[in-house]
Structure formats: structure tokens, C-alpha cells
């Protein structure tokens, strides 16, 4: 395996940031040629942008789950950016996290890792919680760039979340309402609005995957998202399992996401 921390200057964020990248490479079991080392594999790597949740960082998936041990068996590069508690938004007087993950990050990742495929059919996004929202937003706002996107316990109805969390730590710490100043509508930050727009454009959409625990507080937001997807006649894959908003759920079901995306056998 190959593990990297890639630190580069981001113009969208106005500072140097760390992004974690992992990819499968030579193993102990691979043939060792005495005189020369053949190029490892000719097939380009698929790319998964894997997003963290609120109060988290670019290392969460690596430290808290078995992601790396699953990825070893496949042919995909996993890119994990840091987005503080931005909700993957361009913050009103702060760093532009939406511009960062939707535009700048791929521009800085693809030239740095020449093995990575640039094809839409090889490009994916997924995330947990705040990251599930982010991944779906990428799939709906930039459908021409992604083959499939997945949400694990995603906060998929942001308008409802903002209303539900008024005055709590979530609304103080997570920046989902920074752009809206008591407005009723949240524009393109609302996945339910993006779903309508995506359906109207009739462009080729990515495949969609939702997974949520039945005891999870984001369960109602996932039901709202399902309803909107059904109303817009956009197909999706949905799973629910016993579980709450916790790492044991994400550690378990990340494997299903990777298999559904065909990133691992």
C-alpha cells in the first residue's frame, strides 16, 4: 500500500492544506524480479473522493475504519480532503470549500498522481454525515464528472437540519447556516432543490446510493431525500440497517459502498 499526505497551496481556501491519499501498490506477495522492477499495473486507477463528517478531518476514515485494508484488494485511489465544519460550502467571509472540492481539488490531484484516471466513469464521491451531504451535492451539481456518489448517514435535508438544530452546538459549530441569515430558502445548498434541477436537465446523472441507520437522527432527512428522488423520478439505491450515527455503522457499510462502486472485488 501507498499512503501519502499531500500538502499544497489552495487558492480557494487561501492557505496550504493537507489531503490524505492512499492507493494500492506493491505487496509482499508480488513477484520480486531480481534485476529490474516492472511497472506495477498499466490500468489507470479509479478515483474516490471520500469526505469526512462534522467535527472531523481528512484522517478520520483512515484512523476510525478498515478502509485501507479494503482498498488494498482493489484498483482505486482514495482522496480524503479536509473541510473543517464547512458543510462543503463557500463560506461567506471564509474559505471556499465548495469551490475547493468541486473544482480545485481534482485539478491538484490528477496531475500529482499520473496513474489516476480522468474519465467520468472512473470518478466517484462518497462521505459520511456532513460528507454524505457533500458527496450528493457533487453528484447533483456536477453530474458530468461522476459515475456514482454515495451517502452514509448523510444530512440530506439541510433546510430541515437548520430548523431542527437552532441554538444547539451543531448550529454553532457546523457552518451550514452561515450563508443564509434566517432566509427560508437555501438555494443550491439544498439537495432537494438540486434534485429537481438535475431531473429537469435530463442530463446523464450519476448513480446514487443512500445508506442510513434506523436509529440515526438523520433518518428523517434520508426519508425526505428519498421522497424527493421518487418525485423527480431519479433512480437510486437505498439501504437501511439497525444502527445509529456512529463509526461502527460507517466502518461496516463502507465495504458495501466500495463494492457497489466496483472499486473492490
Amino acid at each position: 500500500m501507498f499512503f501519502a499526505t499531500y500538502k499544497f497551496f489552495s487558492a480557494a481556501l487561501g492557505r496550504e492544506v493537507n489531503t490524505r491519499v492512499i492507493l494500492p501498490s506493491r505487496e509482499a506477495k508480488d513477484p520480486f524480479e531480481k534485476e529490474s522492477f516492472r511497472p506495477y499495473q498499466e490500468e489507470p486507477l479509479k478515483v474516490l473522493y471520500l469526505l469526512h463528517g462534522g467535527f472531523g478531518c481528512e484522517e478520520d476514515w483512515l484512523y476510525m475504519t478498515r478502509l485501507a485494508s479494503l482498498v488494498r484488494k482493489g484498483r482505486a485511489m482514495i482522496v480524503m480532503p479536509f473541510a473543517e465544519n464547512s458543510y462543503y460550502q463557500d463560506l461567506p467571509y471564509g474559505p471556499g470549500y465548495w469551490t475547493f472540492i468541486s473544482e480545485e481539488l481534482p485539478e491538484m490531484i490528477l496531475p500529482m498522481f499520473p496513474q489516476a484516471s480522468r474519465r467520468r466513469e472512473d470518478t466517484f464521491a462518497a462521505g459520511l454525515s456532513m460528507g454524505g451531504y457533500g458527496a450528493l451535492r457533487l453528484g447533483l451539481a456536477k453530474p458530468e464528472r461522476f459515475a456514482a456518489v454515495a451517502s452514509l448517514s448523510g444530512v440530506l435535508d439541510l433546510k430541515a437540519r437548520i430548523a431542527d438544530s437552532k441554538g444547539s452546538l451543531a448550529s454553532r459549530g457546523l457552518r451550514f447556516s452561515d450563508n443564509f441569515f434566517d432566509e427560508d430558502e437555501i438555494g443550491d445548498s439544498d439537495l432537494l432543490v438540486l434534485m429537481k434541477k438535475a431531473a429537469e436537465q435530463k442530463e446523464k446523472l450519476p448513480r446514487f446510493y443512500f445508506s442510513v441507520g434506523t436509529e440515526d437522527f438523520v433518518y428523517p432527512y434520508n426519508q425526505n431525500a428519498k421522497k424527493q428522488m421518487d418525485a423527480c423520478e431519479i433512480p437510486y439505491h437505498y439501504e437501511e440497517h439497525p444502527g445509529a450515527h456512529e463509526w461502527s455503522y460507517w466502518n461496516l457499510y463502507i465495504e458495501s459502498v466500495l463494492k457497489w462502486m466496483k472499486l473492490i472485488p
Binding site: A4, Y6, K7, F9, M108, M112
Partner: peptide, 15 residues
């Protein structure tokens, strides 16, 4: 300049 800090398996070093 970007800096990439890497940790990886080497077949020559067997580790």
C-alpha cells in the same frame, strides 16, 4: 512547492 509525505511498501526492503 507541494510536499508529499509518503509511507509505502518496498519490495527491495521487504517492508
Amino acid at each position: 512547492m507541494a510536499i508529499v509525505e509518503c509511507s509505502f511498501y518496498s519490495q527491495a526492503l521487504l517492508g
